[in-house]
Design a protein around this nucleic acid. Sequence first.
DNA 1: CATGAATGAGTTTTCATTCAT
DNA 2: GATGAATGAAAACTCATTCAT
Lengths: 209, 209, 209, 209
Amino acid sequence: MGKTAKKPTRAEQKARRPREILESAFEEFTANGYAATRVEDVAARLGITKGTVYLYFPTKDALFEAMIRHMSTPFTEILASVETLQGSYSERLRVLLLLAHEKIADDRKTRELLRLTLAEGARFPHIVDRHYDEFIAPLLGAVGALVDQGVSSGEFRDGAAASVPEVVTSSVLHIAVMRLMFADRKPIDGTGFIEAHVDLALNGLLKHS
Amino acid sequence: MGKTAKKPTRAEQKARRPREILESAFEEFTANGYAATRVEDVAARLGITKGTVYLYFPTKDALFEAMIRHMSTPFTEILASVETLQGSYSERLRVLLLLAHEKIADDRKTRELLRLTLAEGARFPHIVDRHYDEFIAPLLGAVGALVDQGVSSGEFRDGAAASVPEVVTSSVLHIAVMRLMFADRKPIDGTGFIEAHVDLALNGLLKHS
Amino acid sequence: MGKTAKKPTRAEQKARRPREILESAFEEFTANGYAATRVEDVAARLGITKGTVYLYFPTKDALFEAMIRHMSTPFTEILASVETLQGSYSERLRVLLLLAHEKIADDRKTRELLRLTLAEGARFPHIVDRHYDEFIAPLLGAVGALVDQGVSSGEFRDGAAASVPEVVTSSVLHIAVMRLMFADRKPIDGTGFIEAHVDLALNGLLKHS
Amino acid sequence: MGKTAKKPTRAEQKARRPREILESAFEEFTANGYAATRVEDVAARLGITKGTVYLYFPTKDALFEAMIRHMSTPFTEILASVETLQGSYSERLRVLLLLAHEKIADDRKTRELLRLTLAEGARFPHIVDRHYDEFIAPLLGAVGALVDQGVSSGEFRDGAAASVPEVVTSSVLHIAVMRLMFADRKPIDGTGFIEAHVDLALNGLLKHS
DNA sequence: CATGAATGAGTTTTCATTCAT
DNA sequence: GATGAATGAAAACTCATTCAT
């Protein structure tokens, strides 16, 4: 009965439990929604019993909210990363959007948080604000800042489009929503899609004689 | 208090009932989601009892599905309307997107159907297909056709990437999602947003010297 | 629109209704039992609505009891018929038992009333007494009287068996119960069975040297 | 109020629960029939809540079927016991029928299973087959075998009709049915009844000069 | 007479939560 | 810590009964 490195120590085990539960909760809540998920299912996925879940989270509600918090890998650092981008503003914009796609539309966790936000926002109002603050606002801020700089630099024209960073950003959301809807049934080439969007956003549809 | 047209006759009432119930169901299901909506609430909103709901719909499930069907005002006709558009292709595209915005993002019914599709698609798989067939496919088809014509006519450049329709369309979805998220808390100027998007899509960000 | 003999007059129709309902009720109650039968099913079988049933019978309970009364074709006259039998007492007993079989075990109505009596007797105590008075007591009385006469005449021996008419009678019940249990799955040759019983009851199993 | 063996431990309780529930279910189902029995009544009889019943049995249906299984103490062993009987075949037949009476008509459990089989057979078809296989077939088999041996030995006459086992057996059924009908209201001397039937079956009614 | 829409009091079943072990 | 038996409050669904037409 030596305490080899194989099985985790009791302390490690204990520290791991809440995280395991939250991750199981994420799977169940995103698959079924809040109301249709049973605490017992969250437990069963881990091979534990529901009593154990209640050891760590006082109510189903608290579990849900903690799960949302745990699964959010906020995105605010993207704002900072804008500073480090190199090259033309076109190129920077391209890199930024590809990054956003990777972190938002391509990342299952973030994508499913969007679903929960839309589905359960009515009953958990602050996850909406949280979602805005953690994902949407930083992205819009970063894109907005970059476009502004591009305009200042003379690379981008000044005009309506520039003042609405959402339009520059919308294809990221589009990909996320399509993936939420169709899962694997209609696979989407996200990167290609973003490239197309960047091309369009930079050059426009019109033929410039 | 004469016998004015106040209370409807039995026959009138009966003819109206299913529709009333479906509309009440729409409100409740979109506000709470499928699982968290009680059939009794659907009834109470109409001042009737749940037994009456079961007179018209055999299960909660059937009620939900019938509601989805009833509330879908598919806009496949938009495809046809493309034919009737006049003016330059830029102008036609602008009109088409404004129309799409009006029918999809601005129309509460359609918008909430999107929410239900995302939230309940896992348990009601065919509402996803329905949503694609009724809303997404026609819009993409119409935009795609218009862009093709614009390219043929020489007004639009040809190099535009394959995903153009989705890209051109994404702002409509963006508005819908933002409105679903924030309801009235962050009002969105949809028309302005679309105009900005059209401007971007046509002219691009780059300054053409 | 002549009032030909084809369709019954309103008066006839009216007089027929209660009987039709009782017969429909018989089918439903015997097929499903009291609790599992819905008044609506009784009506549907006649192509009428449940409201109509309530026009004739105030409650489901009353309908059930009226049905029991209506379907009982009491059997008391058999007692009288004993007087008219001719021939040896053996022969008279044989005829009497065949008659009883025909009226009790072979007659679907009477047989199903036995089922209802056993199944619902706890909730409708007096249908038990009714059943006893109308079917069991007359049969036992008739058989008992005949056996007594046979003993008096010297044809039958005096003994335990003679004083327990039930034993002479039991095969009738046996057939009824088997038919209730197995319906058509295990067909029973009732007449042959009775003949066998009579043979046994008269001669016994023992070989008389 | 020492800690005597008063209240069972959790573990004991749990081991006992399913059996307790099935026995409570037996009482309720036999008293009211399937449809008229409420799961809550089954629970209340034990001082527990209906939720607890559902912990052990997934549906009312499953509870009913499990109860039938639990309460059946099939007596196929009776067939074997025939071999051990001693004495004349008349005596063996007498003992066998008294045994059958004791196990079928006199045993409340078996008797009530007959009632349920007749009452609910339409909705639970296999309890009919089960009843036949566990009670009727073994009894008929045992009696038939014994009669055959009696004939071979020369003790019983040969002409006895084909249905002899059923006929010889019918009084057992008769007693069971009468007891189901009248409970304690018409007490029946089962043993005397059987003795009378055996007397009849062996000697017949006829006086043998 | 007959209808059938509507009701309301049940009944089955589910599940978050508790707590003795 | 962990269990899982037990609870109780709720939710889907049913159906006898009523009553306006």
